[in-house]
Computed example of a mutant assay.
Amino acid sequence: MAQKGRPRDVKLQQLILSVSYELLLENGYESVTIEKIAETAGVSKATIYKWWPNKAAVVADGFFKAAASQMPVPDTGSVMEDILIHATNLAVFMESKEGNMIAELIGQGQMNQTLMKVFREYYVKPRRSESAMILTRGINRGELSPNLDVNSSIDLLYGPLFYRLLVSGESFTPDKVRGIILMAFNGLRNLNERKINERKINEK
C-alpha cells in the first residue's frame, strides 16, 4: 500500500511498478527483491520505500494495476450480462500467464501474512467491490430482490472460478463460465423466493 509523503514523481513510480511486474512474471515472487527492483529501475531502495512499505506492497501494486486494465467493469444495462462479462474476463485472465501468478501469490501468502494481507487489499477487495456494484445496480433496476445478500452472492458466483484455479485445475471455456453463472443466478432467485415466502408465512 503506497505511503503518504511528498508528491510522487508519477513517471518514476510507474517505472518502478513496471519493473516489479516484469520481474514477477519472469522470476516469480520469491525471486523478486527490493534490491533487484531498485537496480533494474535505476533508483535507490530509499526511493521505493518512500512509496511502498515492503516488497509485497510494490509487487502487488504493480501486478494488480496491470491486471485491472485487463478486466474493465461492464455496464450493459443487464445484471446477468454484466456479471457474465465480468466473470468471463476474470476467467480469461486466470488462464493467462499473468493470471497463473495469482495462484502463486495465494500459495506464497499461506506462509507470508504480509503478502496475503496485501493480496486481499489490492486484489480481493477491489474485485468484490466491482461485483457488489454490478449486483447493486441490478437491485436498483428491479432485476434482483432488494433482500439479496450481496456478499454471499459474490461468493456463490465467483467461488467456483477460484476453486478451478486453486483446487481442480480445470480449464475455463466461455460455455463453462456461462453455465456456472446461470446456475448461480437460478440459485439466487430460488433463495430469494424462499426468503420472501418464509417472511410472508411469518407475518401471518
Rank of each mutant, 00 (worst) to 15 (best):
N190F: 08
G159V: 11
I196C: 04
I83S: 00
I139T: 06
N100F: 05
Q110Y: 07
F93V: 01
V118Q: 14
M183A: 15
L156K: 10
L191G: 10
E121K: 14
E130H: 05
I154Y: 00
R194N: 08
L161M: 07
I180C: 04
M111P: 00
T114E: 15
N147W: 14
I196P: 00
L115C: 06
I180S: 01
E104Y: 07
S152K: 11
L165W: 04
I85F: 08
L148G: 09
G99E: 02
K176V: 09
S145V: 00
E104H: 05
K125G: 00
M71S: 08
V150H: 01
I102L: 12
R189C: 04
M116W: 08
P74E: 13
Q110R: 10
I196D: 01
F172D: 09
S152F: 12
L166W: 04
E198G: 06
G142P: 02
A103Y: 05
I102G: 02
Y122D: 11
P72W: 10
E95Q: 14
Y122L: 09
Q70W: 01
N100H: 15
G109W: 02
R127C: 00
I85S: 00
Y158S: 06
I139L: 05
E198R: 12
I102D: 04
V92A: 14
G142M: 13
S171K: 15
M111Q: 12
R137H: 11
L115F: 09
L182M: 13
R137E: 07
S152R: 14
P72I: 06
R141Q: 11
S152Y: 13
G77I: 08
A91C: 06
A91W: 00
S129V: 07
S96R: 13
F185Q: 02
T76D: 06
V73S: 03
N89A: 10
K117S: 15
T88K: 05
N100D: 01
Y163M: 12
Q113L: 13
F93H: 15
L90Y: 07
S129Q: 15
F119W: 12
V79K: 03
L144F: 01
S129R: 00
S96D: 15
V150M: 04
E170S: 12
K195W: 11
L144R: 01
N186W: 15
N147A: 15
D149K: 01
A87F: 04
I106H: 09
P146A: 02
L105N: 09
Y123K: 06
R127D: 10
L188M: 10
D82L: 07
T88Q: 14
L165F: 02
A91V: 00
S129K: 10
F172M: 04
T76Q: 06
M94N: 03
V150N: 03
L105W: 08
Q108C: 13
I102V: 14
V118T: 13
L105A: 09
N89L: 10
